[in-house]
Structures are given as structure tokens and as C-alpha cells.
């Protein structure tokens, strides 16, 4: 399992930070002070979430709880409040990521391996597709879903969410696939494997890190998506955590801040863990190079 050449270059260059010449203590001190100030400012709004979740009498104010209590967590750990919405979030996010990855891999293969006169215009159309403001098309998508009787359907919502992330996924997947050398694949062809078999047995295993990045990237986006399921899924039994948290605390939030914070933390944990896994395994540079390279 050797890292792709691009990731290796990025990692090597990242470590060669130019050493500061001597006598620049003040600059260095000011730099660190500025960093610390920004870091603290970014943490402050999150501090409230942590404190309030452990405080049975939490309000809007940030304060160290008088008495640490897990009552808020206990209060939200019920099937209809937490487990069903989280399961729905998982269904939506995993379904979206699976559909996106499958479609993106299939599309990326001919685009990467059999370039034709369609390839460039297609890739630029796809890139253009990444720029559509998804919230802007929710009104027409609602109209479309009414026409096709798709409203309140989880599979239809999954396919729509997969489509919105598909352009970025195709773009990233093709870049990752381009970095797998053709020669390894040609050897498989010599052994009589068809194009699809070579893709499955040779190319995909070699780019599994890239595929992991795309999957997690789409999963995180879908897990956190509020607006799409808010418009397209109507039954509370099908709504993901993002929507149920909004409708429940939209009505009861005025009294249950602690529970809101506890729920938020439990709902955020999976994506925080996934993001950590992704960035530890590959580094930001790796993911960014897949997304940004032209």
C-alpha cells in the first residue's frame, strides 16, 4: 500500500517549513499570540454546547455547570427523540454516499481510461454542475417531486442528494483514478480480464484511499444536510436528526437548552470521528488535491 505520488509530494513539501532566522523572537511571539486568539474565538461558540449539555439548568449563557449532570443526555436517549432520527440520518447519508460513489466510479472509468472528444466537455459540464446553488433549486425540486409522486420517499431523496454531490464526486474520483498508472491495468488485460473486471480487481483496490475520501466526504455532507430532507421528507418517522432536532426544539427549545446541546453533541459525534479518520489517514493535502486539481 503505497501512497499516491501526489500525496507523497505534498507531505514532503509540507514538512520543509523554512526555519526563521535568529533575532525574530517578537515576530514569532506575535504570530503565536494571534493564532491563540483566533483559536479561542473559534472555540467559544462550541464551549456553550459542551457546558450546556452537562448542565441540567442550562440557558443561553455559557457557564461552568454548578453540578455536572448527565440528565440532559438521559432525557434525549429515547427511541423517538434520538435513535429513530439518527438511524434515518444514517440511512440517508450511507445511501447517498453509496449511490454517489457507484455512479462516480462508473463514470470516472471511461473518462479516465478512454478519453474521447466527449471527455473534456463532459468534465467541464460536471464542474459547472458543482456550482449550482442547491438551495436555489429546492423550490423546483419540490415541484418535480410532487409531479412524480416522490414526495416523502426516502429512496427518491437519496437519489436527489446523491445527484447534488455527484459532480464533485466524479471530479475527485477521476483525479484519483488518473493517478493509478495504466500499466498495472494493461497487465490484467493481457491476462484476459475485461475492462470492468480490471477496474474491480486492479484499479479500485489501488485507489481505495481516494474512494474512502470521496465516500466520507459525501457521507459527512449528507449527514449534516438539513434543507433537502426538510423540504422533501414529511413524515416524522422518516426525518433525519437534522430535521427532527429543528422541529422538536423549534417548539420546545425555549425551555430545553441543555437537551438541545446534548442532542447536538450526540448527533455531531459520528461526523467528527469520520473526519478525524479521514484526515489522519490521508492528510488534508490529499483530499484537497483530489478536489481542487484541474
Amino acid at each position: 500500500m503505497s501512497p499516491s505520488p501526489r500525496a507523497r509530494t505534498t507531505a514532503r513539501k509540507g514538512t520543509t517549513a523554512a526555519p526563521l532566522p535568529g533575532g525574530r523572537r517578537t515576530v514569532r511571539w506575535a504570530t503565536n499570540a494571534a493564532l491563540a486568539v483566533v483559536g479561542v474565538s473559534f472555540l467559544l461558540p462550541l464551549l456553550w454546547l459542551v457546558f450546556a449539555s452537562l448542565d441540567a439548568e442550562a440557558g443561553h449563557a455559557t457557564r461552568v455547570p454548578r453540578q455536572l449532570s448527565l440528565a440532559n443526555f438521559a432525557a434525549v436517549l429515547t427511541p423517538e427523540l434520538l435513535f429513530v432520527p439518527l438511524f434515518n440520518s444514517f440511512l440517508l447519508a450511507a445511501g447517498t454516499a453509496a449511490v454517489t460513489l457507484l455512479a462516480a466510479v462508473l463514470a470516472a472509468y471511461p473518462l479516465s481510461r478512454h478519453p474521447s472528444r466527449f471527455t473534456r466537455p463532459f468534465m467541464y459540464s460536471v464542474l459547472f454542475g458543482t456550482s449550482l446553488p442547491v438551495t436555489a433549486i429546492m423550490v423546483p425540486v419540490y415541484g418535480l417531486f410532487v409531479q412524480l409522486n416522490f414526495l416523502d420517499s426516502v429512496p427518491a431523496t437519496i437519489f436527489f442528494m446523491a445527484t447534488t454531490t455527484l459532480p464533485m464526486a466524479i471530479w475527485m474520483t477521476r483525479n484519483f483514478m488518473d493517478s493509478v498508472p495504466r500499466e498495472v491495468e494493461e497487465a490484467a488485460w493481457m491476462d484476459g480480464a475485461s475492462g470492468m473486471a480490471a477496474l474491480r480487481t486492479v484499479v479500485l483496490p489501488l485507489m481505495r484511499r481516494g474512494l474512502g475520501v470521496v465516500f466520507i466526504f459525501v457521507f459527512i455532507q449528507a449527514w449534516g444536510n438539513f434543507f433537502v430532507p426538510f423540504i422533501l421528507l414529511l413524515s416524522p418517522s422518516k426525518q433525519p436528526a437534522a430535521v427532527s432536532i429543528f422541529s422538536f426544539f423549534g417548539q420546545h427549545g425555549a425551555i430545553a437548552y441543555g437537551e438541545l446541546a446534548a442532542f447536538s453533541i450526540l448527533y455531531s459525534l459520528p461526523v467528527l470521528v469520520l473526519y478525524t479518520v479521514m484526515s489522519r489517514g490521508s492528510g488534508h493535502g490529499f483530499a484537497m488535491s483530489g478536489a481542487m486539481k484541474g
Partner: peptide, 30 residues
């Protein structure tokens, strides 16, 4: 550490970030 703090606000689900920001700016907020 600072990078982690900045990225945390970005990785959080949008609705959670919105609730946290709402609390931060509210009358008796942080």
C-alpha cells in the same frame, strides 16, 4: 490545535453550528 478548532466549526452539521451561533449571539449569550 488552532486548525482543529477552526475545522470543528466546519465539520459540525450545519444545524448544530446554527444553534451554537444562535446561543452565542442571543441576549444572554456568550
Amino acid at each position: 490545535t488552532v486548525g482543529t478548532a477552526v475545522v470543528a466549526a466546519w465539520v459540525l452539521p450545519e444545524i448544530v453550528a446554527a444553534f451554537a451561533a444562535y446561543a452565542y449571539f442571543s441576549r444572554d449569550g456568550t
